[in-house]
Amino acid sequence: MLIDIKNLHVTVDGTEIIKGLNLSIKEGEVHAIMGPNGSGKSTLAQTLAGRADYEVTGGSITYLGQDLLAMGPDERARAGLFLSFQYPVEIPGVSNVYLLKAALNARRRAAGEAEVDAVAFMRIVKEKAALLELDQQFLSRGVNEGFSGGEKKRNEIFQMAVLEPRFAVLDETDSGLDIDALKVVAKGVNAQRDGNRSFLMITHYQRLLDYVQPDYVHVLAGGRIIKSGDKSLAVELEASGYDGLLAAANG
């Protein structure tokens, strides 16, 4: 088991958002979580990454046999967890390439590996930038500084491609992308699917799932997973919406 979430309860600003969520992901699996606005999708993503102001009031998360909730956000990342942010942060004054090198070396040191040398690093970076169709110039710019919405999302997947996580959480990486950008992002994600790496994709739309085919689809509503299935569930949702499901769940 890669990650095992049991009866998770999360409170944000005094309001309980996640109310007893269970989810298990095995190595190599791709899971998609869909759900209406306010159902707790992004809260789940931020909680997995370790955001301090998201208070876990109950339940457990076991990641590779470790208690994930006892780890700081940086420890989680060094243990191979990656979050593609819904709203990537702009950090003027810290260049993309500087951040990536520091991040990559932090992971390597934690794994007892040698730091990457400058030549090897630039080779990795150039290769992955080409995959995500990102201009070389952007590497020396501030992190996400002045990037368009689409560029920010591509940059997230680019970072993922360089860092090669064991478990990637993609929080609405598809939203705000036109179809061409979506295809590029999907290509970046698919290139990372190797049978060992696992993904949790949070999305509003089935569209992304046409390009990155999930093994499982879950519907999150009211802070709980109310239905799970294979990718046909996404097609069903796209056709009939959440209303029927929600009525059934509440009834």
Binding site: D74, A77, R78, L83, V89
Partner: peptide, 13 residues
């Protein structure tokens, strides 16, 4: 937010 973003990439506090 910037601090959390950097932490989430594995960089220590």
């Amino acid at each position: 937010n910037a601090l959390f973003y950097l932490l989430s990439r594995g960089i220590d506090q």
